[in-house]
Design a protein around this nucleic acid. Structure first.
Length: 593
DNA sequence: GTAGGGTTAG
Protein backbone atom coordinates (compact mmCIF):
# COMPACT_ATOMS: atom_id res chain seq x y z
CA UNK A 1 0.00 0.00 0.00
CA UNK A 2 2.43 2.68 1.15
CA UNK A 3 5.72 3.08 -0.59
CA UNK A 4 8.73 4.05 1.47
CA UNK A 5 9.94 6.59 -1.03
CA UNK A 6 6.68 8.49 -1.41
CA UNK A 7 5.62 10.34 1.69
CA UNK A 8 1.88 10.98 1.73
CA UNK A 9 0.34 14.28 2.69
CA UNK A 10 -3.07 15.06 4.10
CA UNK A 11 -4.63 15.12 0.64
CA UNK A 12 -3.36 11.62 -0.15
CA UNK A 13 -4.73 10.45 3.13
CA UNK A 14 -8.16 11.98 2.58
CA UNK A 15 -8.47 10.58 -0.94
CA UNK A 16 -7.56 7.04 0.07
CA UNK A 17 -9.77 7.23 3.10
CA UNK A 18 -12.70 8.37 1.01
CA UNK A 19 -12.17 5.33 -1.21
CA UNK A 20 -12.17 3.07 1.86
CA UNK A 21 -15.35 4.73 3.12
CA UNK A 22 -17.12 4.25 -0.19
CA UNK A 23 -16.30 0.54 -0.56
CA UNK A 24 -16.53 0.25 2.55
CA UNK A 25 -13.25 -1.33 3.54
CA UNK A 26 -12.96 -1.24 7.32
CA UNK A 27 -9.75 -3.27 7.58
CA UNK A 28 -7.95 -1.36 4.85
CA UNK A 29 -8.93 2.00 6.29
CA UNK A 30 -7.93 1.03 9.79
CA UNK A 31 -4.62 -0.45 8.64
CA UNK A 32 -3.99 2.69 6.68
CA UNK A 33 -4.72 4.82 9.71
CA UNK A 34 -2.25 2.83 11.80
CA UNK A 35 0.49 2.90 9.19
CA UNK A 36 0.29 6.62 8.80
CA UNK A 37 0.11 7.08 12.53
CA UNK A 38 3.36 5.13 12.95
CA UNK A 39 5.06 7.43 10.48
CA UNK A 40 4.50 10.20 12.98
CA UNK A 41 2.13 11.93 10.64
CA UNK A 42 0.38 15.10 11.74
CA UNK A 43 -3.29 14.92 10.83
CA UNK A 44 -4.93 18.16 9.92
CA UNK A 45 -8.55 18.94 10.77
CA UNK A 46 -9.71 17.87 7.33
CA UNK A 47 -8.11 14.43 7.60
CA UNK A 48 -9.31 13.97 11.14
CA UNK A 49 -12.87 14.69 10.06
CA UNK A 50 -12.47 12.28 7.14
CA UNK A 51 -11.33 9.62 9.55
CA UNK A 52 -14.25 10.33 11.84
CA UNK A 53 -16.64 9.89 8.95
CA UNK A 54 -14.85 6.73 7.90
CA UNK A 55 -15.25 5.07 11.29
CA UNK A 56 -18.89 6.11 11.48
CA UNK A 57 -19.62 4.73 8.01
CA UNK A 58 -17.98 1.35 8.63
CA UNK A 59 -19.89 0.98 11.87
CA UNK A 60 -17.15 1.61 14.42
CA UNK A 61 -18.84 4.23 16.60
CA UNK A 62 -16.50 3.83 19.58
CA UNK A 63 -13.45 4.68 17.47
CA UNK A 64 -15.33 7.65 16.05
CA UNK A 65 -16.25 8.85 19.53
CA UNK A 66 -12.67 8.48 20.75
CA UNK A 67 -11.29 10.37 17.78
CA UNK A 68 -13.81 13.15 18.21
CA UNK A 69 -12.96 13.51 21.91
CA UNK A 70 -9.24 13.67 21.11
CA UNK A 71 -9.56 16.26 18.37
CA UNK A 72 -7.81 19.47 19.50
CA UNK A 73 -10.18 21.75 17.64
CA UNK A 74 -13.51 20.83 16.18
CA UNK A 75 -15.25 22.84 13.52
CA UNK A 76 -18.85 22.73 12.34
CA UNK A 77 -18.24 19.90 9.90
CA UNK A 78 -16.62 17.71 12.56
CA UNK A 79 -19.63 18.29 14.79
CA UNK A 80 -21.99 17.51 11.93
CA UNK A 81 -20.23 14.23 11.18
CA UNK A 82 -20.41 13.24 14.83
CA UNK A 83 -24.09 14.20 15.09
CA UNK A 84 -24.91 12.14 12.01
CA UNK A 85 -22.93 9.20 13.38
CA UNK A 86 -24.68 9.32 16.75
CA UNK A 87 -28.04 9.52 15.00
CA UNK A 88 -27.22 6.57 12.77
CA UNK A 89 -26.53 4.38 15.80
CA UNK A 90 -29.69 5.48 17.54
CA UNK A 91 -28.22 7.91 20.07
CA UNK A 92 -30.62 10.72 19.24
CA UNK A 93 -30.41 12.46 22.61
CA UNK A 94 -26.58 12.47 22.49
CA UNK A 95 -26.82 13.92 19.01
CA UNK A 96 -29.22 16.58 20.25
CA UNK A 97 -26.91 17.42 23.16
CA UNK A 98 -24.01 17.94 20.77
CA UNK A 99 -26.23 19.98 18.48
CA UNK A 100 -27.29 22.26 21.34
CA UNK A 101 -23.70 22.70 22.53
CA UNK A 102 -22.26 23.57 19.14
CA UNK A 103 -20.70 27.02 19.03
CA UNK A 104 -22.17 27.67 15.61
CA UNK A 105 -24.25 25.69 13.17
CA UNK A 106 -24.77 25.55 9.46
CA UNK A 107 -27.75 24.20 7.55
CA UNK A 108 -26.32 20.68 7.50
CA UNK A 109 -26.33 20.64 11.31
CA UNK A 110 -30.05 21.38 11.32
CA UNK A 111 -30.64 18.93 8.48
CA UNK A 112 -28.90 16.09 10.30
CA UNK A 113 -31.13 16.66 13.31
CA UNK A 114 -34.23 16.76 11.09
CA UNK A 115 -33.39 13.41 9.55
CA UNK A 116 -32.56 11.89 12.94
CA UNK A 117 -35.96 12.93 14.34
CA UNK A 118 -37.73 11.77 11.20
CA UNK A 119 -36.14 8.34 11.45
CA UNK A 120 -37.33 8.19 15.06
CA UNK A 121 -40.83 9.03 13.89
CA UNK A 122 -40.78 12.26 15.87
CA UNK A 123 -42.01 14.59 13.14
CA UNK A 124 -42.93 17.24 15.68
CA UNK A 125 -39.34 17.72 16.90
CA UNK A 126 -38.14 17.54 13.29
CA UNK A 127 -40.55 20.35 12.42
CA UNK A 128 -39.32 22.51 15.32
CA UNK A 129 -35.74 22.16 14.12
CA UNK A 130 -36.85 22.87 10.56
CA UNK A 131 -38.58 26.13 11.48
CA UNK A 132 -35.69 27.18 13.75
CA UNK A 133 -33.23 26.76 10.90
CA UNK A 134 -32.46 30.30 9.67
CA UNK A 135 -30.62 29.03 6.59
CA UNK A 136 -33.09 26.47 5.22
CA UNK A 137 -31.83 24.94 2.00
CA UNK A 138 -33.29 22.42 -0.42
CA UNK A 139 -31.99 19.56 1.76
CA UNK A 140 -33.96 20.84 4.75
CA UNK A 141 -37.17 20.85 2.74
CA UNK A 142 -36.45 17.45 1.22
CA UNK A 143 -35.76 15.91 4.61
CA UNK A 144 -39.05 17.28 6.00
CA UNK A 145 -41.05 16.14 2.97
CA UNK A 146 -39.56 12.67 3.25
CA UNK A 147 -40.32 12.67 6.97
CA UNK A 148 -43.99 13.38 6.30
CA UNK A 149 -44.09 10.73 3.56
CA UNK A 150 -42.58 8.10 5.85
CA UNK A 151 -45.10 9.02 8.55
CA UNK A 152 -48.07 8.59 6.22
CA UNK A 153 -48.95 12.28 6.13
CA UNK A 154 -48.97 12.82 2.39
CA UNK A 155 -51.14 15.90 2.71
CA UNK A 156 -48.50 17.67 4.79
CA UNK A 157 -45.75 16.41 2.49
CA UNK A 158 -47.59 17.79 -0.53
CA UNK A 159 -48.19 21.08 1.25
CA UNK A 160 -44.46 21.61 1.79
CA UNK A 161 -43.72 20.36 -1.73
CA UNK A 162 -46.16 22.89 -3.11
CA UNK A 163 -44.77 25.74 -1.00
CA UNK A 164 -41.27 25.17 -2.35
CA UNK A 165 -42.19 26.62 -5.71
CA UNK A 166 -39.28 26.47 -8.11
CA UNK A 167 -36.73 25.70 -5.40
CA UNK A 168 -37.20 21.96 -5.93
CA UNK A 169 -34.42 19.73 -7.18
CA UNK A 170 -34.63 16.22 -8.59
CA UNK A 171 -34.44 14.70 -5.11
CA UNK A 172 -37.48 16.73 -4.04
CA UNK A 173 -39.45 15.28 -6.95
CA UNK A 174 -38.12 11.78 -6.31
CA UNK A 175 -39.11 12.00 -2.65
CA UNK A 176 -42.66 13.00 -3.53
CA UNK A 177 -42.98 10.39 -6.28
CA UNK A 178 -41.71 7.58 -4.07
CA UNK A 179 -43.94 8.83 -1.26
CA UNK A 180 -47.00 8.35 -3.42
CA UNK A 181 -45.77 4.98 -4.68
CA UNK A 182 -45.20 3.76 -1.15
CA UNK A 183 -48.74 4.72 -0.25
CA UNK A 184 -50.28 2.96 -3.18
CA UNK A 185 -51.16 6.11 -5.11
CA UNK A 186 -49.53 4.91 -8.27
CA UNK A 187 -51.45 6.98 -10.79
CA UNK A 188 -50.68 10.10 -8.78
CA UNK A 189 -46.98 9.21 -8.79
CA UNK A 190 -46.99 8.97 -12.57
CA UNK A 191 -48.80 12.28 -12.96
CA UNK A 192 -46.24 13.99 -10.71
CA UNK A 193 -43.53 12.65 -12.98
CA UNK A 194 -45.31 14.31 -15.90
CA UNK A 195 -45.26 17.62 -14.01
CA UNK A 196 -41.58 17.06 -13.27
CA UNK A 197 -40.93 16.86 -16.98
CA UNK A 198 -42.99 19.95 -17.70
CA UNK A 199 -40.79 21.82 -15.23
CA UNK A 200 -37.71 20.53 -17.05
CA UNK A 201 -36.26 18.81 -14.01
CA UNK A 202 -34.05 15.97 -15.15
CA UNK A 203 -35.22 12.62 -13.82
CA UNK A 204 -32.64 10.25 -12.37
CA UNK A 205 -32.28 6.49 -12.09
CA UNK A 206 -34.09 6.73 -8.77
CA UNK A 207 -37.06 8.45 -10.39
CA UNK A 208 -37.25 5.57 -12.83
CA UNK A 209 -37.14 2.93 -10.09
CA UNK A 210 -40.13 4.50 -8.33
CA UNK A 211 -42.06 4.89 -11.58
CA UNK A 212 -41.37 1.30 -12.61
CA UNK A 213 -42.62 0.17 -9.24
CA UNK A 214 -45.82 2.18 -9.84
CA UNK A 215 -46.21 0.53 -13.27
CA UNK A 216 -45.65 -2.91 -11.76
CA UNK A 217 -48.46 -2.32 -9.28
CA UNK A 218 -50.80 -0.86 -11.88
CA UNK A 219 -49.91 -3.43 -14.52
CA UNK A 220 -49.25 -0.48 -16.80
CA UNK A 221 -47.18 -2.23 -19.45
CA UNK A 222 -47.23 0.55 -22.04
CA UNK A 223 -46.04 3.21 -19.62
CA UNK A 224 -43.45 0.76 -18.30
CA UNK A 225 -42.18 0.17 -21.83
CA UNK A 226 -42.06 3.91 -22.41
CA UNK A 227 -39.96 4.35 -19.25
CA UNK A 228 -37.62 1.59 -20.39
CA UNK A 229 -37.17 3.36 -23.74
CA UNK A 230 -36.64 6.64 -21.90
CA UNK A 231 -33.91 5.06 -19.75
CA UNK A 232 -32.10 3.94 -22.89
CA UNK A 233 -32.61 7.26 -24.67
CA UNK A 234 -31.24 9.24 -21.73
CA UNK A 235 -28.37 6.80 -21.22
CA UNK A 236 -29.34 6.25 -17.61
CA UNK A 237 -27.24 3.60 -15.91
CA UNK A 238 -29.04 0.30 -15.47
CA UNK A 239 -27.53 -0.89 -12.21
CA UNK A 240 -28.81 -3.82 -10.17
CA UNK A 241 -31.59 -1.77 -8.58
CA UNK A 242 -32.92 -0.31 -11.81
CA UNK A 243 -32.43 -3.65 -13.55
CA UNK A 244 -34.42 -5.36 -10.85
CA UNK A 245 -37.18 -2.76 -11.10
CA UNK A 246 -37.40 -3.42 -14.86
CA UNK A 247 -37.54 -7.19 -14.39
CA UNK A 248 -40.24 -6.86 -11.77
CA UNK A 249 -42.25 -4.39 -13.86
CA UNK A 250 -42.26 -6.58 -16.98
CA UNK A 251 -43.03 -9.70 -15.01
CA UNK A 252 -45.88 -8.11 -13.02
CA UNK A 253 -47.26 -6.52 -16.19
CA UNK A 254 -47.58 -9.96 -17.73
CA UNK A 255 -44.58 -9.91 -20.05
CA UNK A 256 -42.18 -12.51 -18.71
CA UNK A 257 -40.33 -12.58 -22.05
CA UNK A 258 -39.31 -8.93 -21.72
CA UNK A 259 -38.38 -9.56 -18.09
CA UNK A 260 -36.06 -12.35 -19.22
CA UNK A 261 -34.51 -10.09 -21.87
CA UNK A 262 -33.67 -7.48 -19.26
CA UNK A 263 -32.41 -10.14 -16.87
CA UNK A 264 -30.05 -11.71 -19.40
CA UNK A 265 -28.80 -8.32 -20.50
CA UNK A 266 -27.72 -7.22 -17.02
CA UNK A 267 -23.95 -7.15 -16.57
CA UNK A 268 -24.33 -7.53 -12.81
CA UNK A 269 -27.04 -9.44 -11.01
CA UNK A 270 -27.56 -9.56 -7.27
CA UNK A 271 -29.94 -11.62 -5.16
CA UNK A 272 -32.83 -9.20 -5.86
CA UNK A 273 -32.52 -9.71 -9.62
CA UNK A 274 -32.40 -13.49 -9.30
CA UNK A 275 -35.31 -13.50 -6.89
CA UNK A 276 -37.43 -11.31 -9.15
CA UNK A 277 -36.90 -13.56 -12.17
CA UNK A 278 -37.49 -16.75 -10.15
CA UNK A 279 -40.67 -15.31 -8.63
CA UNK A 280 -41.75 -14.06 -12.06
CA UNK A 281 -41.21 -17.38 -13.83
CA UNK A 282 -43.11 -19.18 -11.10
CA UNK A 283 -45.97 -16.68 -11.13
CA UNK A 284 -46.40 -17.16 -14.87
CA UNK A 285 -46.53 -20.91 -14.56
CA UNK A 286 -42.99 -21.71 -15.72
CA UNK A 287 -41.99 -23.79 -12.71
CA UNK A 288 -39.31 -25.71 -14.62
CA UNK A 289 -37.64 -22.50 -15.72
CA UNK A 290 -37.81 -21.14 -12.18
CA UNK A 291 -35.93 -24.26 -11.03
CA UNK A 292 -33.40 -23.86 -13.84
CA UNK A 293 -32.85 -20.24 -12.86
CA UNK A 294 -32.32 -21.36 -9.28
CA UNK A 295 -29.69 -23.90 -10.36
CA UNK A 296 -28.03 -21.24 -12.50
CA UNK A 297 -27.99 -18.86 -9.56
CA UNK A 298 -26.24 -21.43 -7.40
CA UNK A 299 -23.59 -21.89 -10.10
CA UNK A 300 -22.98 -18.15 -10.04
CA UNK A 301 -22.19 -18.49 -6.35
CA UNK A 302 -25.16 -16.48 -5.10
CA UNK A 303 -26.63 -17.85 -1.89
CA UNK A 304 -30.43 -18.15 -1.98
CA UNK A 305 -32.48 -16.49 0.77
CA UNK A 306 -36.02 -16.82 2.07
CA UNK A 307 -37.48 -14.88 -0.85
CA UNK A 308 -35.77 -17.19 -3.34
CA UNK A 309 -37.48 -20.18 -1.77
CA UNK A 310 -40.86 -18.47 -1.76
CA UNK A 311 -40.45 -17.96 -5.51
CA UNK A 312 -39.19 -21.47 -6.08
CA UNK A 313 -41.83 -23.26 -3.99
CA UNK A 314 -44.75 -21.17 -5.23
CA UNK A 315 -43.45 -21.76 -8.77
CA UNK A 316 -43.45 -25.51 -8.16
CA UNK A 317 -46.95 -25.21 -6.78
CA UNK A 318 -48.39 -23.34 -9.77
CA UNK A 319 -46.84 -25.88 -12.13
CA UNK A 320 -47.77 -28.96 -10.14
CA UNK A 321 -44.13 -29.95 -9.53
CA UNK A 322 -44.89 -31.77 -6.31
CA UNK A 323 -41.79 -33.91 -5.84
CA UNK A 324 -39.45 -31.04 -6.79
CA UNK A 325 -41.15 -28.76 -4.29
CA UNK A 326 -40.96 -31.42 -1.58
CA UNK A 327 -37.25 -31.91 -2.25
CA UNK A 328 -36.37 -28.24 -2.12
CA UNK A 329 -38.44 -27.70 1.01
CA UNK A 330 -36.67 -30.52 2.81
CA UNK A 331 -33.25 -29.24 1.73
CA UNK A 332 -33.88 -25.62 2.70
CA UNK A 333 -32.29 -25.48 6.12
CA UNK A 334 -29.84 -28.40 5.89
CA UNK A 335 -28.36 -27.73 2.46
CA UNK A 336 -28.98 -24.02 1.96
CA UNK A 337 -29.02 -22.74 5.53
CA UNK A 338 -32.37 -20.99 5.15
CA UNK A 339 -34.84 -21.76 7.92
CA UNK A 340 -38.35 -22.27 6.57
CA UNK A 341 -40.66 -19.46 7.62
CA UNK A 342 -44.43 -19.46 7.71
CA UNK A 343 -44.53 -18.33 4.10
CA UNK A 344 -42.64 -21.44 3.03
CA UNK A 345 -45.04 -23.67 4.91
CA UNK A 346 -47.78 -21.73 3.18
CA UNK A 347 -46.30 -22.58 -0.21
CA UNK A 348 -46.04 -26.26 0.74
CA UNK A 349 -49.63 -26.42 1.93
CA UNK A 350 -50.68 -24.82 -1.35
CA UNK A 351 -48.48 -27.21 -3.34
CA UNK A 352 -49.82 -30.32 -1.62
CA UNK A 353 -53.40 -29.08 -1.54
CA UNK A 354 -53.43 -28.07 -5.18
CA UNK A 355 -52.16 -31.51 -6.13
CA UNK A 356 -54.91 -33.15 -4.09
CA UNK A 357 -52.84 -34.38 -1.14
CA UNK A 358 -55.25 -32.88 1.35
CA UNK A 359 -54.46 -35.18 4.27
CA UNK A 360 -50.75 -34.60 3.87
CA UNK A 361 -51.29 -30.86 3.70
CA UNK A 362 -53.39 -30.97 6.87
CA UNK A 363 -50.71 -33.03 8.57
CA UNK A 364 -48.09 -30.46 7.63
CA UNK A 365 -50.21 -27.68 9.09
CA UNK A 366 -50.66 -29.59 12.31
CA UNK A 367 -46.99 -30.43 12.71
CA UNK A 368 -45.43 -27.15 11.66
CA UNK A 369 -43.30 -25.39 14.24
CA UNK A 370 -45.15 -22.11 14.16
CA UNK A 371 -48.80 -21.26 14.63
CA UNK A 372 -50.46 -21.50 11.22
CA UNK A 373 -51.83 -18.19 10.00
CA UNK A 374 -54.85 -17.40 7.88
CA UNK A 375 -52.92 -17.72 4.63
CA UNK A 376 -51.98 -21.29 5.49
CA UNK A 377 -55.54 -22.25 6.46
CA UNK A 378 -56.83 -20.32 3.47
CA UNK A 379 -54.67 -22.31 1.04
CA UNK A 380 -55.97 -25.50 2.52
CA UNK A 381 -59.54 -24.26 2.28
CA UNK A 382 -59.13 -23.49 -1.41
CA UNK A 383 -57.85 -26.98 -1.97
CA UNK A 384 -60.83 -28.36 -0.07
CA UNK A 385 -63.15 -26.45 -2.35
CA UNK A 386 -61.51 -27.81 -5.49
CA UNK A 387 -61.49 -31.40 -4.28
CA UNK A 388 -64.90 -30.96 -2.68
CA UNK A 389 -63.70 -32.12 0.71
CA UNK A 390 -66.28 -30.75 3.09
CA UNK A 391 -64.94 -32.77 6.02
CA UNK A 392 -61.57 -31.05 6.20
CA UNK A 393 -63.03 -27.70 5.23
CA UNK A 394 -65.25 -27.67 8.32
CA UNK A 395 -62.14 -28.00 10.51
CA UNK A 396 -60.25 -25.39 8.56
CA UNK A 397 -63.09 -22.93 8.70
CA UNK A 398 -63.04 -22.73 12.50
CA UNK A 399 -59.37 -21.82 12.58
CA UNK A 400 -59.70 -19.31 9.79
CA UNK A 401 -62.44 -17.26 11.37
CA UNK A 402 -60.81 -17.35 14.79
CA UNK A 403 -57.52 -16.16 13.40
CA UNK A 404 -58.65 -13.46 11.10
CA UNK A 405 -62.07 -12.24 12.17
CA UNK A 406 -61.62 -8.97 10.29
CA UNK A 407 -60.56 -10.20 6.87
CA UNK A 408 -63.62 -9.84 4.69
CA UNK A 409 -62.12 -12.11 2.05
CA UNK A 410 -62.31 -15.11 4.37
CA UNK A 411 -66.04 -14.69 4.96
CA UNK A 412 -66.63 -14.27 1.26
CA UNK A 413 -64.75 -17.41 0.43
CA UNK A 414 -66.44 -19.40 3.14
CA UNK A 415 -69.81 -18.12 2.08
CA UNK A 416 -69.04 -19.18 -1.48
CA UNK A 417 -68.25 -22.69 -0.31
CA UNK A 418 -71.55 -22.84 1.56
CA UNK A 419 -73.39 -21.41 -1.42
CA UNK A 420 -71.90 -24.04 -3.70
CA UNK A 421 -73.44 -26.78 -1.57
CA UNK A 422 -76.71 -24.91 -1.09
CA UNK A 423 -76.19 -24.27 2.60
CA UNK A 424 -77.95 -20.95 2.54
CA UNK A 425 -78.37 -20.70 6.32
CA UNK A 426 -74.61 -20.80 6.67
CA UNK A 427 -74.24 -18.23 3.91
CA UNK A 428 -76.61 -16.04 5.89
CA UNK A 429 -74.58 -16.71 9.04
CA UNK A 430 -71.43 -15.49 7.30
CA UNK A 431 -73.19 -12.34 6.27
CA UNK A 432 -74.49 -11.77 9.80
CA UNK A 433 -71.09 -12.39 11.36
CA UNK A 434 -69.58 -9.90 8.98
CA UNK A 435 -71.95 -7.13 9.92
CA UNK A 436 -71.85 -7.97 13.64
CA UNK A 437 -68.08 -7.87 13.68
CA UNK A 438 -68.00 -4.74 11.58
CA UNK A 439 -65.88 -6.36 8.88
CA UNK A 440 -65.37 -3.81 6.19
CA UNK A 441 -65.08 -4.67 2.55
CA UNK A 442 -62.20 -3.38 0.53
CA UNK A 443 -63.49 -1.44 -2.44
CA UNK A 444 -62.69 -3.31 -5.63
CA UNK A 445 -60.48 -1.40 -8.02
CA UNK A 446 -59.41 -2.33 -11.53
CA UNK A 447 -57.13 -0.41 -13.79
CA UNK A 448 -56.53 -0.52 -17.52
CA UNK A 449 -54.17 1.44 -19.64
CA UNK A 450 -55.51 3.01 -22.81
CA UNK A 451 -53.45 5.51 -24.79
CA UNK A 452 -50.81 5.93 -22.07
CA UNK A 453 -53.42 6.86 -19.51
CA UNK A 454 -54.27 4.56 -16.65
CA UNK A 455 -58.02 4.41 -16.15
CA UNK A 456 -59.03 3.29 -12.71
CA UNK A 457 -62.47 1.94 -11.96
CA UNK A 458 -63.34 1.81 -8.28
CA UNK A 459 -66.45 0.01 -7.07
CA UNK A 460 -69.30 2.43 -6.66
CA UNK A 461 -67.57 5.24 -8.51
CA UNK A 462 -69.51 6.42 -11.54
CA UNK A 463 -67.33 9.41 -12.27
CA UNK A 464 -65.66 8.05 -15.40
CA UNK A 465 -66.79 10.25 -18.33
CA UNK A 466 -67.84 7.23 -20.36
CA UNK A 467 -69.55 5.43 -17.50
CA UNK A 468 -73.00 5.33 -19.09
CA UNK A 469 -71.72 4.00 -22.43
CA UNK A 470 -69.69 1.34 -20.63
CA UNK A 471 -72.73 0.17 -18.69
CA UNK A 472 -74.86 0.03 -21.81
CA UNK A 473 -72.11 -1.91 -23.55
CA UNK A 474 -71.93 -4.37 -20.65
CA UNK A 475 -75.67 -4.89 -20.80
CA UNK A 476 -75.34 -5.69 -24.49
CA UNK A 477 -72.52 -8.10 -23.72
CA UNK A 478 -74.56 -9.98 -21.16
CA UNK A 479 -77.37 -10.20 -23.69
CA UNK A 480 -75.04 -11.73 -26.25
CA UNK A 481 -73.52 -14.02 -23.65
CA UNK A 482 -76.89 -15.55 -23.02
CA UNK A 483 -76.75 -16.69 -26.62
CA UNK A 484 -73.54 -18.53 -25.74
CA UNK A 485 -75.30 -20.36 -22.95
CA UNK A 486 -74.20 -18.24 -20.00
CA UNK A 487 -76.86 -17.79 -17.41
CA UNK A 488 -76.01 -14.98 -15.03
CA UNK A 489 -75.68 -16.14 -11.46
CA UNK A 490 -78.64 -14.13 -10.28
CA UNK A 491 -79.97 -16.65 -7.82
CA UNK A 492 -76.88 -16.87 -5.69
CA UNK A 493 -76.41 -13.12 -5.73
CA UNK A 494 -79.36 -12.97 -3.37
CA UNK A 495 -77.50 -15.00 -0.81
CA UNK A 496 -73.90 -14.62 -1.81
CA UNK A 497 -71.54 -12.17 -0.22
CA UNK A 498 -69.43 -10.18 -2.56
CA UNK A 499 -65.90 -9.25 -1.72
CA UNK A 500 -66.44 -5.79 -3.10
CA UNK A 501 -69.37 -3.53 -2.53
CA UNK A 502 -71.59 -2.94 -5.52
CA UNK A 503 -73.47 0.32 -5.36
CA UNK A 504 -76.88 0.39 -6.92
CA UNK A 505 -75.69 2.48 -9.83
CA UNK A 506 -72.91 0.01 -10.56
CA UNK A 507 -74.24 -3.29 -11.77
CA UNK A 508 -70.90 -4.90 -12.51
CA UNK A 509 -67.63 -5.55 -10.77
CA UNK A 510 -64.74 -3.27 -11.57
CA UNK A 511 -62.76 -5.73 -13.71
CA UNK A 512 -65.73 -6.24 -15.99
CA UNK A 513 -66.11 -2.49 -16.39
CA UNK A 514 -62.42 -2.14 -17.14
CA UNK A 515 -62.50 -4.96 -19.71
CA UNK A 516 -65.58 -3.50 -21.40
CA UNK A 517 -63.91 -0.10 -21.53
CA UNK A 518 -60.84 -1.75 -23.05
CA UNK A 519 -62.85 -3.46 -25.77
CA UNK A 520 -64.68 -0.24 -26.56
CA UNK A 521 -61.53 1.85 -26.73
CA UNK A 522 -59.01 -0.33 -28.54
CA UNK A 523 -58.89 -1.80 -32.06
CA UNK A 524 -60.15 -5.36 -32.61
CA UNK A 525 -57.65 -8.08 -31.76
CA UNK A 526 -55.63 -6.03 -29.27
CA UNK A 527 -54.97 -7.74 -25.96
CA UNK A 528 -56.72 -6.32 -22.94
CA UNK A 529 -54.71 -6.06 -19.74
CA UNK A 530 -56.47 -5.36 -16.48
CA UNK A 531 -55.17 -5.31 -12.93
CA UNK A 532 -57.47 -5.79 -9.99
CA UNK A 533 -56.73 -5.33 -6.28
CA UNK A 534 -58.99 -8.20 -5.15
CA UNK A 535 -59.61 -11.71 -6.30
CA UNK A 536 -61.81 -12.01 -9.37
CA UNK A 537 -65.17 -13.48 -8.43
CA UNK A 538 -66.63 -16.64 -9.92
CA UNK A 539 -69.20 -14.91 -12.06
CA UNK A 540 -66.73 -12.43 -13.52
CA UNK A 541 -64.26 -15.23 -14.18
CA UNK A 542 -66.84 -17.21 -16.10
CA UNK A 543 -68.01 -14.11 -17.95
CA UNK A 544 -64.52 -13.05 -18.96
CA UNK A 545 -63.88 -16.49 -20.43
CA UNK A 546 -66.92 -16.05 -22.63
CA UNK A 547 -66.06 -12.45 -23.52
CA UNK A 548 -62.65 -13.61 -24.72
CA UNK A 549 -64.37 -16.02 -27.07
CA UNK A 550 -67.12 -13.67 -28.19
CA UNK A 551 -64.82 -10.75 -29.01
CA UNK A 552 -61.83 -12.85 -30.01
CA UNK A 553 -59.57 -11.00 -27.59
CA UNK A 554 -56.85 -12.15 -25.27
CA UNK A 555 -57.74 -10.76 -21.86
CA UNK A 556 -55.03 -10.74 -19.22
CA UNK A 557 -56.26 -10.05 -15.72
CA UNK A 558 -53.86 -9.84 -12.83
CA UNK A 559 -55.89 -10.17 -9.67
CA UNK A 560 -54.73 -10.26 -6.06
CA UNK A 561 -53.42 -13.79 -6.43
CA UNK A 562 -52.24 -14.43 -9.94
CA UNK A 563 -52.42 -13.89 -13.68
CA UNK A 564 -55.43 -15.06 -15.63
CA UNK A 565 -54.88 -15.28 -19.38
CA UNK A 566 -58.33 -15.58 -20.95
CA UNK A 567 -58.20 -16.86 -24.50
CA UNK A 568 -60.85 -18.42 -26.70
CA UNK A 569 -63.22 -19.20 -23.86
CA UNK A 570 -60.78 -20.65 -21.35
CA UNK A 571 -58.39 -19.42 -18.71
CA UNK A 572 -54.74 -20.18 -18.02
CA UNK A 573 -55.48 -20.79 -14.33
CA UNK A 574 -57.31 -23.91 -15.48
CA UNK A 575 -60.17 -22.70 -13.30
CA UNK A 576 -58.32 -23.48 -10.10
CA UNK A 577 -60.66 -22.21 -7.40
CA UNK A 578 -63.21 -21.17 -9.96
CA UNK A 579 -65.54 -24.10 -9.66
CA UNK A 580 -68.30 -21.87 -10.89
CA UNK A 581 -71.51 -23.66 -11.60
CA UNK A 582 -74.67 -21.77 -12.47
CA UNK A 583 -76.93 -22.01 -9.47
CA UNK A 584 -79.65 -23.94 -11.19
CA UNK A 585 -77.26 -26.90 -11.60
CA UNK A 586 -75.95 -26.93 -8.07
CA UNK A 587 -78.68 -29.14 -6.72
CA UNK A 588 -77.83 -31.89 -9.21
CA UNK A 589 -74.27 -32.22 -8.05
CA UNK A 590 -73.58 -34.90 -5.48
CA UNK A 591 -71.46 -33.97 -2.55
CA UNK A 592 -70.03 -36.58 -0.25
CA UNK A 593 -70.99 -35.08 3.04
C1' DG B 1 -21.75 16.84 6.33
C1' DT B 2 -27.48 16.78 5.33
C1' DA B 3 -32.38 14.53 1.28
C1' DG B 4 -34.62 10.13 -2.80
C1' DG B 5 -34.68 3.68 -5.07
C1' DG B 6 -35.61 -2.87 -5.70
C1' DT B 7 -37.56 -9.05 -4.68
C1' DT B 8 -41.78 -12.38 -0.40
C1' DA B 9 -46.80 -17.80 0.09
C1' DG B 10 -53.72 -18.11 -0.35
Amino acid sequence: MLREDVFPDNTTFSVVLRACTAVPAARAGEGFHCQIFKLGFEFDLFSQTGLLDFYAKVGDLSSAKRLFAEMPDRDVVAHNVMIAALGKFGYASDARKLFDEMPDRNSASYNSMISIYCKLGDIHSAGLIFYRNPVKDVVSWNAMIDGYCKLDDLTKAWELFDRMGSAKNSITWNTMISGYVQHGEFGRAISIFQQMQEQNVKPTEITMVSLLSACAHLGALDIGKWIHAYIRRQNLRTDVVLGNALIDMYSKCGSIEAALDVFHGLPMKNIFCWNSIIVGLGMHGYGDDAINAFVEMEKEGIKPDGVTFVGLLSGCSHSGLVSEGRDYFSQMSGVYGVNPGIEHYGCMVDLLGRAGFLEEALELVKTMRMKPNSVVWGSLLRACRIYKDTKISEQVTQHLLELDPHDGGNYVFLSNIYASVNRWEDVELCRRLMSERGVHKTPGCSSIEVGNIVHEFVAGDTSHPQFTQINTFLDEISWELRGLGHEPDTDSVLHDIEEEEKESAVRYHSERIAVAFGIMSTPPGKSIRVVKNLRTCDDCHATLKLISKLFMRVIIVRDKNRFHHFRDGSCSCKDYCYAFVPTQFIARIQYDE
